[in-house]
């Protein structure tokens, strides 16, 4: 997992796109959901729209970056960092 992020980090400057985990987004940053570890992500989150291919925006973070207030495909919700680390996203260039 880490390995992948590192590899892709090399492309960061070229592509302005980055595969990373959801918890590393900055406030206001948008990304596309790539995949997630199914066992670590509740079904409820999927039902609220957290599915591969959907856009996610980090709306707000509480102190210590936890929990995170997201806008996933028009659904506004908050999840804890411990869940966010299991969701892989591809950041969108501004």
């Amino acid at each position: 997992m880490k390995c992948i992020s590192v590899t892709f980090a090399l492309f960061k400057f070229n592509l302005n796109k980055l595969i990373t985990s959801l918890d590393t987004l900055k406030r206001g940053q948008k990304a596309i959901i790539k995949e997630f570890t199914l066992d670590m992500v509740p079904l409820k989150l999927l039902e609220m729209g957290c599915l591969p291919g959907n856009e996610v925006e980090l709306v707000q973070i509480a102190p210590f970056k936890d929990p995170m207030y997201l806008n996933i495909n028009g659904s506004h919700l908050a999840i804890r960092k411990e869940t966010a680390i299991h969701i892989t996203v591809e950041t969108l260039s501004e």
Binding site: V41, P42, K44, L45, M48, V59, P67, Y69, S75, H76, L77, A78, I79, R80, T83
Partner: peptide, 9 residues
């Protein structure tokens, strides 16, 4: 367990 909460308008 998981924590998910909707942030309604």
């Amino acid at each position: 367990t998981f924590f998910v909460i909707e942030m309604p308008n």
